[in-house]
Design a binder for these strands. Sequence first.
DNA 1: ATAGGGTTAG
Length: 700
Amino acid sequence: MRRVLSLTSPRFHLVPLINLSCSYTTTPASVLLSAEGKTLSGTATIQGLLIKNGMLHIPGNGHKLMDSYIKSGGLVEARRAFDEMSSRHVVTWNSMVSACVRHGKSEEAIRLYGRMLREGVFPDEYTFSRVFGVLSDLGLALEGRKVHGTAVVLGLDFRNLFVGSALVDMYAKSGNMEDARLVADRVVEEDVVLITSLIVGYARNGRDADAVCAFRDMMSKGIGANEYTFASTLISCGRISNVDAGKSIHALTFKSGFVSFVEPQTSLLTMYLKFGMVDDSVEVFACLDDPNVVTWTSLINGMARNGREVTAISYFQEMLRRSMNPNSHTLSSIIQACSSMAMLEIGIQIHGLSVKSGWSRNLYIGAAFIDLYGKCGIAEMARSVFDEFKVKDVVSINSMIHCYAINGLGAEALHLYGRMKQLSIDPDNVTFLNILLACSNACLVEEGRRVFAELRERPHLVVTDDHYACFADLLGKSGRLEEAEALVLEMRPEDVVLWRVLLNACQIHDKVEMAERIIDRVRELVPRDGWSHVVMSNMYASSCKWDKVTEMRSILKETGLKKDRAMSWVHVNREVHTFFASDLSHPDTPEILVTLEELIQRTRSLGYVPNFKYVYQHIEHKKQEELLYYHSEKLAIAFALYRTRGNSSSIRILKNLRTCGDCHAWIKLVSLVIQRTIIVRDVKRYHHFLNGSCSCGDIW
DNA sequence: ATAGGGTTAG
């Protein structure tokens, strides 16, 4: 049994305002201008003295004054001093440009560059390295190329490493790795920063293998990597799952003495989490003296991705306990952890926390909450989060459509899709996938067909195997098996996933003969496909062809497929209780069995008859009945009811496999008997049971 | 007198 600790209320600490004061001084102005530890008011005092003594126009003093303002953080004052100068050296221009950049005034920096040219001042290497950086930050790729041209015309020294690395960075950030590489190769002297820019460029353009290559090149040339290089390269190793490279670069990090640097260590941790090597990442984390928010976030996110959602939550709590403020990345990661385990109560707490800390307007967070409520089976709450957003982007709409899709609300999904067109937001690949899923889960065949046709008419969108699988699933589930088969044969006959979809449809509609034809196809593509043989075996069992079952099982043995043990889990009072099929190890088992017996009696009186079609073992009926009664979801429901009797709230069950037909029919009647909503999330979709019926319309 | 690159989420 896994337990989830309750979350203590997090405390956010305000950073106290630092009281900056400066003391009055009588030291001569010219000395003061070059003194360290400048303050704004101190500089103003000096400016007064300079003016009073007529010293402001002495060459160099104007620049010193401006510099002094820059160093004390007074950009406006610095700019005024700059504007009042009668003549300005290129260094003065550069300093002013730099100051603007540091204060985030990118456009202002560009304007200064233009004014500089108009006033006939020649920009130098300092100017250009800054300007290239600004242009790439602003995403002005075309302008960047023009300025590069200007620099060529002015005969700038491109062997200058600062110019070179700024250019590499600029081209890389605009996605132009070809030119980035050209520039890098022209710089004669090889340098860590320059090559790091190249490596980072490859990484951000999805060319992680090239990034690792560039790193290797760099090593072979004897250029020492530093913490920046390691930070980026390790991430690339993680993303392409290159464990060998990752491990040897880890060793290098250690040898080069970067064990105490947070950023490369965070990358190391992220890398191991991407590899699925959770223990190694925990070890890296344990060695860090001072993990920052990013480190914590990476750890939390990685844990959740590796199926350790509860651990992720513990780390989140630990982070709060250590007065570390979560940011939007942290929150969206922890919300995801809650979503995948349908931990609604904790999710709601995180929601409160997000509102309090001002993150609730963030689109990532919003999409994460929509996903959370969707995965907890509460579409209305997802919708209210969605409606709170004034500005909607394609991702939040996709999340909302997905929520409708998994909850079987096809009409709502289609309606939102229609509204998307009104808002003139372009649907993307994910939108189409979610809409098709929505049609599939609601068995909206004609609508699905229309959407699929629409997708094919959009040349800029790629129709993926997932789209085909979803559409084929819709056709198959709704009984149009021949049409589905024709589609697969015509479009993607080599894709085994699609044949599996068809096999699933055969199972739903008890088409044994067609299934036999299809599994032959599967065998041509994958000779020993475990999953397909499980389906075949179950189908033969349902029609009592026990010799065929034996045959399938012997093939299954050869495939080496380990069937997941059927399990369900249920949340009661902030605890997660897990039940396996026929698992009577829970401490409350006596009470569970009493409750279960009572439920079975009451449902039987309403017409429930155990359906032995879903027992895949050739044993006597009495034993078959017991197997059915002890299906994990039945145990979980009995337990939840026992623990929350008299309560009217809904019961939420999660399952790792598909819900069987017997349980499905039974739970429908249970919902009638106990007059409560029962939400079952199985591996394929959601089932909302209420008043004796299910939202899936009995096809799933 | 001035200048460069990195780690977390859909």
